Amino acid sequence: MINHRFSMLITIQQQREEKLQAQFVAAQQFYQQAEQKYQGLANYRTDYIRQSQQQGAAGLQSRQYSQFVNFIAKLDQAILQQGRAVHQARAAAEQRKQSWLAMQKKRKALELLVQRGEQAELLRQLREEQKNADEYASQLYSRAQAVQL
């Protein structure tokens, strides 16, 4: 009965663990996507500056230069915001990972407890069987002694 209860608890823990693992995987994927977007923005900024410098070698009008500076500022702001999003996504993924690992640890502890309980029960049964066998042998010996008298 107790093992059945623990078995149910372990099943519940496994379901929770699987759910937390799925949440971790989703958070990890979201983090990777945010990181890729960040890298994409940074690469775009670098490419845009390079292209603008090549075009600027021929000379830029003040209006074009102003647009260039404004666009770079907007890119910098987007990169900064995406950097924050990456940081938050990484923190969320790490938190979900820790939750998943904690649940995994609880499940393993329950499994170990059940295993130890089963081993103790088996040992108790073996001792009981040995005791019964010893009593039976003792009774046989006593009867044999009584018959010889």
Rank of each mutant, 00 (worst) to 15 (best):
K131Y: 02
L149Q: 15
R143E: 06
Q28L: 14
L126Y: 07
E129F: 11
E35L: 14
Y65Q: 15
I79E: 06
I49D: 02
A89V: 02
A92G: 09
G117R: 11
G83E: 03
Q104K: 14
L149S: 13
Q82V: 02
Q67H: 15
L9V: 14
Q125E: 04
N70Y: 06
K106N: 12
E94A: 12
Y48P: 03
A42Q: 11
G59Y: 12
R127I: 02
I49M: 10
Q98C: 01
K97V: 07
E121H: 10
V114L: 13
F6Q: 10
Q53T: 07
Q64N: 11
A144L: 04
A42G: 01
R90F: 01
R107N: 04
R50T: 11
A73W: 01
K74A: 14
E18R: 10
T46H: 13
E128P: 00
G117S: 00
Q36I: 10
R50N: 12
Q139Y: 08
A89S: 09
A146S: 07
M1A: 12
A34L: 05
H87K: 11
A22W: 00
K108W: 04
R143P: 02
E128D: 12
A27P: 08
K106D: 11
A42N: 10
Q77G: 02
L140C: 15
K37F: 02
Q28A: 14
Q148E: 08
D76M: 05
Q139P: 00
Q82P: 02
G59Q: 03
L20F: 14
A42V: 03
E128R: 09
G83C: 11
L140V: 15
I72E: 08
L126M: 09
R16T: 08
A91L: 12
S62H: 09
E128V: 02
Q61T: 09
K97S: 12
Y141I: 15
K74I: 13
Q130V: 13
H87L: 06
A133Y: 10
L20T: 02
L140I: 13
K106H: 08
I12G: 00
A42Y: 01
Q36F: 06
E94M: 06
A133N: 10
A89T: 04
A137L: 13
G83A: 03
L60H: 12
L75K: 02
Y44F: 13
Q64A: 09
D134H: 10
Q51V: 00
E35V: 06
Q88F: 00
R16H: 05
E118K: 11
K74R: 15
R127D: 06
A22H: 08
E135G: 04
V25Q: 05
G40K: 12
Q125T: 14
Q64G: 00
Q139M: 06
Y38V: 05
Q14E: 12
K74L: 14
R90K: 15
F6W: 14
E35P: 01
S52E: 03
Q67A: 11
A102G: 07
E135A: 14
Q54W: 02
R127C: 07
L80A: 10
A58D: 01
S138T: 09
Y44R: 08
D76P: 04
R90V: 02
I10D: 04
L112I: 05
R45E: 04
A85G: 08
Q115Y: 11
A58S: 12
L75S: 03
E128H: 07
Q14G: 03
E135I: 07
E128M: 07
R96Q: 09
L126D: 04
K108R: 14
M8G: 08
Y48C: 04
Y141M: 05
K19Y: 06
D47K: 15
T46D: 10
L41Y: 09
Q36S: 14
Q115L: 05
D134E: 13
